[in-house]
């Protein structure tokens, strides 16, 4: 049985993360910026890439015991990426490989720019091709290339140790729209405020709600009720916006709880219109104001305030 499709919505999670590197990864990244690849001593072995700890036992390693490895190494396993993603280091077909650098006992994962899958084989020798602009990042090595000789060597060395690393994750999602969300959106476009009344407990929920959580009952079109577009402000907060990537607000704004008339439904965290933040208060009578296919907010009706000491407790 396939649920009826109500379309999809596109959404992207995108954020510029900033990572601190700590002593060992920091030294490794600083090394890369200066065209040097470092491993760390772990007993009789050398680990590259280096960790602060012995991954088998958790014991702290001597963070000063860094040794230069490579620059050339041997491919111990590889795969071919015919269609690189936006996150891959190269925008043309390449190999992703485990590379044991000379002098290291573990393998570094990196790209090999071999031109063709036919040029790849386990046991082949590779060397780094350095980027000209290096920032202390794993991609300072643009890719490894077949052969023994590093490419792009220069005299540029970092002036300061590298301590931080940017990470820009970006994932686009295509999310199916739930049936109730879609039906609610249609109602909003038609300037109708709908609710869903639970057939078991008769509580009224917002139009897009999927289930009555009290009775674990699915709410469907047959439970739809038309709601009046008036109500009473029961509770609120005035928010002073803080800035973050994606923030759209600059001035203090109100978010209010509205108890819809003739129902037990409280619609939470609603914007208000024509009600300055200093005049927002419990008991204000409001009516719905329509925006473009959605609720823009709630506006005072001018009726006298409702005087009920329990009103403020109607948060939900």
């Amino acid at each position: 049985m396939t649920a009826p499709s109500a379309g999809t919505v596109e959404m992207t999670i995108r954020f510029p993360y900033k990572r601190s590197l700590g002593p060992v990864i920091g030294a490794f990244m600083t090394g890369l910026a200066g065209q040097q690849i470092l491993g760390i001593r772990n007993g009789s072995e050398v680990m590259c890439p280096p960790l602060e700890w012995d991954p088998k036992t958790g014991k702290e390693l001597d963070h000063g015991a860094l040794v230069e490895v490579g620059p050339a190494g041997t491919v111990v396993s590889w795969t071919w990426v015919p269609k690189p993603s936006a996150q891959h280091p190269l925008d043309k077909p390449f190999a992703l490989a485990l590379i044991r650098l000379d002098g290291a006992d573990t393998a570094l994962t990196h790209a090999v720019d071999a031109g063709s899958i036919d040029a790849m084989s386990t046991g082949m020798r590779v060397a780094p091709r350095w980027k000209a602009e290096r920032q202390g990042h794993i991609t300072d090595i643009e890719a490894f290339v077949p052969g023994e000789d590093p490419q792009g060597l220069d005299d540029s060395r970092p002036e300061e140790p590298v301590t931080m690393m940017p990470y820009n994750a970006e994932i686009p999602y295509t999310l199916p729209i739930a049936v109730n969300t879609a039906r609610n959106a249609v109602a909003l476009k038609e300037k109708r405020l709908i609710g869903l009344r639970c057939p078991v407990c008769s509580r009224t929920y917002a139009g897009e709600r999927g289930f009555c959580p009290i009775d674990t009952t699915a709410l469907t079109a047959e439970h739809e009720v038309q709601l009046p577009q008036t109500g009473t402000l029961t509770n609120y907060t005035i928010i002073t916006p803080v800035q973050y990537p994606g923030q759209t607000e600059t001035e203090p704004f109100a978010r209010c709880m509205i108890l819809v008339d003739d129902s037990d439904l409280v619609i939470g965290y609603q914007p208000v219109i024509d009600l300055p933040v200093e005049q927002v208060r419990v008991g204000v009578r409001v009516k719905l104001v329509w925006g473009d296919g959605d609720i823009e907010g709630w506006q005072p009706t001018g009726e006298p305030d409702v005087d009920d000491p329990d009103l403020v407790n109607r948060i939900y």
């Binding site: 890439p49 993603s85 996150q87 790209a111 990042h137 994932i171 199916p176």
Partner: peptide
């Protein structure tokens, strides 16, 4: 619901955030 995004973009995020995720591995 794995259908909602490209696994090639999601799963690098569960890898080592310094050495592996930035390679889109």
């Amino acid at each position: 619901r794995s259908s909602t995004a490209d696994p090639a973009l999601i799963y690098p995020m569960e890898m080592d955030p310094f050495y592996l995720a930035p390679l889109g591995a």
